[in-house]
Simulated scan of single mutants.
Amino acid sequence: MKEREIAVFGGAHVDRRGRISGATVLGASNPGTWFEEAGGGGFNAARNLARLGHRVRMISPRGGDAADDIVAAAAAAAGVIDCPFIFLDRKTPSYTAILESDGNLVIALADMDLYALFSPRRLQQRAMREMLAASDLVLMDANLPEETLAALTDTASRGDRLVAGIAVSPAKVVRFRECLSGLSFLFMNEAEARALTGAEVSEADEWPALLRAAGLAGGVVTRGDRAAVAFDRSGTCLAIPPALPALADVTGAGDALASGFLAARLSGLDVAACLRHGIAAAGITLRSPFAASEEMSASNIERALALVPVPQMLS
C-alpha cells in the first residue's frame, strides 16, 4: 500500500470512561470501573490511519497541562506527527462517558470550549497552507467551530484530494451544514443524520437521497448492528456488520470505520469495497478496550474482511 500524506484537524483530548459493572440504575450510585486514555474523533482516526501505513499529521488546540502530555505520548506511540496549538493558560478538552456493562453508552459530557479558539485565521499560517497543499486527504471533525470547518473545507476542496468529515455528535454535526458540498464523504450515525437533515426514516436506503438533497456528494450512515449505508457519486450500497460475541467498548468504532473506509478509498477502491474495509476496521476496535486499537493494521483488516459480507448495491 502506498503511503499517503494526511492532515487531520479536530479533537485530540482526554477520554474518561466509566463502565458500570452490573445492571444500570439511573439516578443512583452504580458500582463500576474507571478508565482514562487519549481520544477525540479526529485523533482516533489519525492514529488508525497512521497504523494503516500513512504519514499523518494531527492539528488540534490543547492546553498546557498534564492532559496534553497524555495526548502527545499517544500520538508518538501511534506514529502520528503531532502539530498542536498550545494555550498554556488553558486546560486540554476532555470527554467523560458512562457505559453500560455491555459497552453501550449511557450518557457523556464533553468539555470542549478550547476548540472554539481554533479560528479560521490559523489556517492562513504558512505552515498550515503548505500542509494542506501537500495532503492527499484532509479529515476534520465537528469539534471545530462552524466557520473553521467552512474555511478548511473551502481551502482543501480546491485541490485534487479527498476531503472528509466525522460528525462527532448530533449536536455538532450541524456545523457541517454550510460546507457539505465541499466534502467527499461525511461519516455519521443515524442520530447524527437525523440532526443534519431533520428527517425521520425507517430504512437505511432512504438516507442517501436525503443527504444528497442536503448537498452531500458522499457519506456513510451507521446504525449499530443493523445495516450501514454508504454512497458516492457512482452509487449506493448496504452492508450488515458481522455479529460479535462481545463488545469491549463502542467508543471509537465510528472513527475506525471512517479510517478503514478512507484508507481503502486512497487505494482506489469503490464505495462497496470501502464500506467493507470500514466495517472490518470498526470490528477490530469493537473488540478492543481502546478507542484506537493497537491491533489496527492493514494485515488485520484483510483478515477481518473474511467476516464482512459483500455489500448489496442499490439502483
Rank of each mutant, 00 (worst) to 15 (best):
M1Q: 05
E3R: 13
E5H: 08
I6T: 11
F9A: 05
F9G: 00
F9L: 07
G11S: 15
H13G: 08
V14I: 10
R19N: 06
I20S: 02
S21H: 08
S21Q: 04
G22C: 07
G22T: 14
A23G: 00
T24L: 08
L26Q: 11
S29Y: 03
T33A: 14
F35G: 04
F35I: 03
E36W: 01
E37W: 03
A38S: 15
A38H: 01
G41K: 05
G42P: 02
L49V: 11
L52I: 07
L52W: 06
G53R: 02
H54G: 12
R55M: 07
P61G: 06
R62D: 00
G63H: 02
G64P: 02
A67T: 10
A74Q: 01
A77C: 12
C83V: 12
F87L: 14
L88Q: 08
D89V: 06
Y95K: 15
Y95H: 15
D113G: 11
L117E: 13
L117A: 08
R122A: 08
L123A: 15
L132S: 00
A133T: 08
A134T: 12
V138N: 09
M140C: 13
P145I: 03
P145C: 02
L149I: 11
A151M: 07
T153A: 14
R158N: 08
R158T: 09
R158F: 08
R161K: 14
A167L: 14
V173A: 10
E178L: 05
E178W: 01
L180I: 14
G182E: 03
L183I: 04
L186S: 06
F187E: 02
M188C: 13
E190C: 08
G198P: 01
A199K: 12
A204G: 11
A204P: 03
P208G: 09
A209M: 04
A209Y: 01
R212K: 01
A213V: 05
A213T: 07
G218K: 11
G218L: 06
V220T: 10
A227S: 13
A228R: 11
F231T: 04
D232P: 02
D232T: 05
L238E: 08
P242C: 12
L244D: 06
D249H: 06
G252I: 03
A253M: 04
A256L: 11
L266A: 07
D270R: 04
A272Q: 10
A273I: 03
C274P: 01
H277F: 09
G278K: 05
I279W: 02
I279V: 06
A280P: 04
T285Q: 07
A291K: 00
S293P: 03
E294D: 10
M296I: 13
R303K: 10
R303I: 10
A304T: 09
Q312L: 12
L314R: 15
